[in-house]
Design a protein around this nucleic acid. Sequence first.
DNA 1: CTGTTAGCGCATTCAC
DNA 2: GTGAATGCGCTAACAG
Lengths: 361, 361
Amino acid sequence: MRPTVHDIAAEAGVSLATVDRVLNRRPGVKDATRLRVEAAIAAIGFVRDMAAANLAKSRVYPFTFILPAGDNSFMRGLERHVREAMARPAADRVAISLVIVPPFDGAAVARALDAAKVQDPAGIAVVAVDAPEVMDAALRVQASGIPLVTLVSDLGASCRDHFAGIDNHAAGRTAGSLMRRFVGRVPSATETIAVLAGSMLVRDHRDRLEGFRSALSETCTLLPVLEGQDDPAATERLIADLLARHPDVAGIYSLGAGNRGLIAALQRHSGPRPRAVIAHELTPHTRAALEADLIDAVLNQDAGHEVRSAIRVLKAKADGIPAVEAQERIRIDIFLKDNLPFPDEADGKVLRPSGSGSGEN
Amino acid sequence: MRPTVHDIAAEAGVSLATVDRVLNRRPGVKDATRLRVEAAIAAIGFVRDMAAANLAKSRVYPFTFILPAGDNSFMRGLERHVREAMARPAADRVAISLVIVPPFDGAAVARALDAAKVQDPAGIAVVAVDAPEVMDAALRVQASGIPLVTLVSDLGASCRDHFAGIDNHAAGRTAGSLMRRFVGRVPSATETIAVLAGSMLVRDHRDRLEGFRSALSETCTLLPVLEGQDDPAATERLIADLLARHPDVAGIYSLGAGNRGLIAALQRHSGPRPRAVIAHELTPHTRAALEADLIDAVLNQDAGHEVRSAIRVLKAKADGIPAVEAQERIRIDIFLKDNLPFPDEADGKVLRPSGSGSGEN
DNA sequence: CTGTTAGCGCATTCAC
DNA sequence: GTGAATGCGCTAACAG
């Protein structure tokens, strides 16, 4: 049997209450006593049973998550993962309120932040829009002492406590590397590459573009960036036009959403498709396109990981624990047709089992 | 407040004990009563607090892990993750005994299995060697009612309850796809590709080779498979010889271990290196090689995920819960220089935070 | 400053 | 078949 608080108490010759005070760094213990208890803890190698502690505390962490509306598959997947976390409050003693705001609407996000603030939750997670009014609202949240985490899309580092998302510059570089390799090297000829973004107004898209450019450097010729506003219809028109105008385009990098439009355009296109098509986020659409050989690679951020990480960080911040940033880094997954995970996993509909997580998986 | 067993008891007009019997599907309850309790559970939407349940049970799961010795970096990483799990028994009420056996030694694995069996643990996890005596021992373990999980390298499906590892055929296909793309398409010319394996006697290597072949089909010419026995020195000789003999080799796929030898040979080689080099498992060596542009891509299986998954499955089996196979699938990670995770993560030395795991992750 | 006591939500003896 | 009582390891009122 592992040592318990009783064992510490016995070893140190004090009562449970004192042990608890020392354990939780609470005041009201003479230094000498504290030292004795700490010695006892070290001596018998005590490790606190967090499950029991949480049970006794019966503390709940009220968190607010703010997500954009719209039919963006990735965002809806994100929402599903949040709802999943809401559905098992048992596991982590978390009570999440979910707020959906209009997409790409800084004012709406700012209002939602202010509204959340007055509820005084133990923490807020928000898919940020890179606008001044959002930053102001974020600063107000922070000023009121509520931990704030940005999700997927970041704000300035000074306006939030943590960012739960991928390194978008690295993602862009990764896409660039793959593009270079996939397009192939035709000696002494630079290839033409097209980039499709949602909007250069959001930070993650800008970062990806920059990374992509830096990886391709002078290897290829980049056409002017197309902006589809993450809208499938607009995107389809842009891509159809591109394919018509540049039959020789060797690769397309879609760094935003609206991939349904891209896929539709590729499908409708009669000529040979570009040698390399790379997109972001594994959704039912991009998955199908991978399987149908319309897309060659998909870079993905695991929405489930991001949500769970955000929750862990918010809890840590709420408890005043510094939360090891390095451990909460979100990976950039690369998926080809051949290493697609099962639909349930990345894409998924299913809850995790009783155990822990992986992390984690 | 979430409903508790007391609420059920009140709602159904029975005692806690009866509620508990129904909850845990134990006999000794009249059908009519059982129905009433179940109705109450459904009515108030009760969900059992597993943390509290485990606390009350104070059950511990004694598990035995059997791993190969040797200086294989991947295996040592695996061992580190097992030790990590041993170090925090608090989290999952697991008590792991770790047994290290000589590598590639079927007889030793079989002996270790038999030795573990007599301890009567709640489950056994083993990095299998594909040999008849191991299968026999596995069957003996299963016959004695102890759940058995193979880790990383599988045995016949009939000899174990679960396999915690990647789909190696898919991994081979993935490598093949990447190889095809990385080598580039030189119209009307097939390229020469070399495959380096550890040994065709282990199942995962065979599976990878098969997948690789199927993905490349007639696109490339595969040289006869080199077998380095996962030994760096032998591997280095093989590769040096290969590079000398086939200066035109376009790609190398290293599907086993011993990558230090491969890397050393590439480093020493004076001429241009093959256009594409793909290896398995992210270790300090392959990571450094990726960063130094000696290797182009690394396929990886997350050892930490595998260990945690094995534990989850063993616990589920021990409790008689069927364990959702689909949720325990291990992903095939693709790493390029550009999307390398931080050292601590895949490669890592650090423990996870207090929270759950992402996934896991 | 320190100790006593009563739970947190659930499982498990034992009586009835 | 069913119920009352006790405890898992820890925290949080209260007393002292």
